[in-house]
Amino acid sequence: MSGFKACHCCGLVHRMPTLGIGKVAVCSRCDTPIHRQRAAGKSTLPTAAAALGAFILFWPAILLPILDIERLGHHHESSIVTGTIQLISEGSWFVGFVVLLFSIIFPLLKIMMLLELSVLGLFHRKHRAVTYRLMESAGKWSMMDVLLLAFLVMLIKVGSLVQFQVGPAIFAFVLCVAMSMLASLMFDPHAIWEDA
């Protein structure tokens, strides 16, 4: 691999040495990895795999019951989707839409854009930059992990008032958050323009 690459941390341009398998080229000034050489296949494969995993887990996470609340003998089971619908139908428009937007729509958008960038390649090359920028900004607003934290806080705070158990969706939810974080962590923007 010859040519030049700028360090995406400090911006210093480097001449790229030829890399052996399992080697990584780091910035001479700030030690940021600039380029790593994979054995075979596209360098986007780890991202694609993690994003696909997150995409698969996303559906059980939002559709299956996540909480089973029992108060005075009355059972109430709700998933993220039914909970959001309930919030909106009960008139809590603001909270409902906040949850809908930041816990369902943005995370899904982010995962799908990661998938598009890493494996699908549906758009033309010049649109990929737009997709990437969109992904970056959508990613900032995808707050599944915050929702998870909210659940934890609720577990501790309200645990003494009502009885509740977490449903099967919570496991899918935790894994989905982990996978989407892994995917965006491993995503290398250079890889977008690597092939073609």
Partner: peptide, 17 residues
Amino acid sequence: FPTAVVRDDRIGLLNKS
């Protein structure tokens, strides 16, 4: 331009397989 420093990839396991 300076030449990038080559190191062993510490998360090489993930990259190799």
